[in-house]
Amino acid sequence: MPSLFRKKYLNNLSKMSFISTNKARLRKLFSGLLIAAVCMLTFGGCGKSYTPVTHVVVIKGLKFLPYELTIRKGDTVKWINKDLVKHDVTEETNQTWTSGVMNKEDVWKMAITETTDYFCTLHVIMKGKLIVE
């Protein structure tokens, strides 16, 4: 066997024996690297959690603007009454929460944990929707 090929053959043989004797350790190392990579991609780093943000809904022209807002669980929604008349913001199905009466320029906010339909009890056809992703 030519010496160059012999050298390469012996090198590969030693690599293969290293791999076979350290299979379990190598498997663990690979799994760990894979998890770390997934963490980095998803959260920008393992152990880093989502920081809730605040969204704004403007009440104007007897409408909630935007009518439909998609947010993440725990985000805060802030309603600002920019209308000429009073309004309120009330959960629609069972009226489980409400802002109470909001005069012009009043602001009310709440952290949202689930998808919710809401409305204004003073103007019952005024409706809005929050979708939690």
């Binding site: 022209g61 007897l62 409408k63 000429l84 056809i125």
Partner: peptide, 16 residues
């Protein structure tokens, strides 16, 4: 002009 949406909402509410 700003009052018109108020009256239109009143009309819709009245109809309901």
């Amino acid at each position: 002009i700003s009052a018109v949406p108020i009256f239109k909402t009143h009309l819709a509410h009245a109809k309901s």
